[in-house]
Design a protein around this nucleic acid. Structure first.
Lengths: 137, 137
DNA sequence: TCTAATTCCTGTAGCCACTACAGGAGCAAG
DNA sequence: CTTGCTCCTGTAGTGGCTACAGGAATTAGA
């Protein structure tokens, strides 16, 4: 059995985050020593590692909870897991698309700045029908 | 002068968000009617629209505050704007890279599931040195 | 055996950028 | 005069942590 610090080092999950997961019922509460300190088994540490891997893949906690409940079942409900994963995958793809469009838009705005004119073309573009210094002058 | 609902519709900023921006000092507090209702000028609405455009481009509020303070100045400090924008741009690029790697990893995991074996290969992979049903059996 | 450093405990507050109420007041149209 | 819309303030919730404060226990070394 391991103290929380060791569990943290072995699982890669921050100590405060481990306690947070316990509070939120994402992982079950471990046993305690006589003095009230948390004691983790290797299985419990593996579970923390699992949560971390899922988080690294960007899965939200709600989905990870479902994974954990499915992982207890005999066939592990592969179809359900796949649906959740593919859904997440498409969300990631959508995010990439959005960001790529942002990237383009920003790069365009930034390029205009290279001229180095007096009034910043970037702010001008963003203001368009403005509120800036132009109004006053 | 326009009530907050109209300002919201014209700027594309949610009513609650407008009040939030005011509370946080992101935009100045507008005048009020005799009954205490907010009244916005077209310049103030343009400013809300500016904030929204920046948010749409993913700029954090802190940077937008800087933009707004720079936009009051005569030369609009183009160089500073450009630095902030390019910094943001590189953060976006980094995020895209991360997500693309995630996308690959997830797609790989999901592909394995197509076999439709009894134990879900995806959960297996994520558990690896596990805590799941295997332990018990 | 004492001490100092480290680890652990609980509980609360903060982060970001909103969003969603509750509970009440004003205001415009029929 | 009523109905329904808009507006007000203030507070709490979202997600997923992270960072304290203030105290107790454990461990390593002298």
């Amino acid at each position: 059995m391991f103290a929380i610090g060791q569990a943290s080092r072995q699982s890669g999950v921050n100590i405060e985050t481990i306690r947070y997961y316990e509070r939120e019922g994402i992982v079950p509460a471990p046993g305690r020593s006589a003095a009230g300190r948390r004691l983790y088994s290797t299985e419990e540490i593996a579970m923390l590692r699992f949560v971390r891997r899922c988080r690294d893949l960007g899965f939200p906690i709600s989905v990870i909870k479902t994974f954990l409940s499915l992982s207890g079942q005999d066939d592990r409900r592969c179809a359900e897991v796949k649906i959740l994963a593919d859904d997440h995958l498409s969300q990631i793809s959508a995010k990439i698309e959005t960001l790529t469009r942002l990237q383009d838009a920003l790069a365009n705005l930034s390029r205009n700045c290279d001229a180095g004119t007096a009034a910043c073309p970037m702010l001008e573009a963003l203001m368009q029908d403005g509120f800036g210094a132009d109004e006053a002058g």
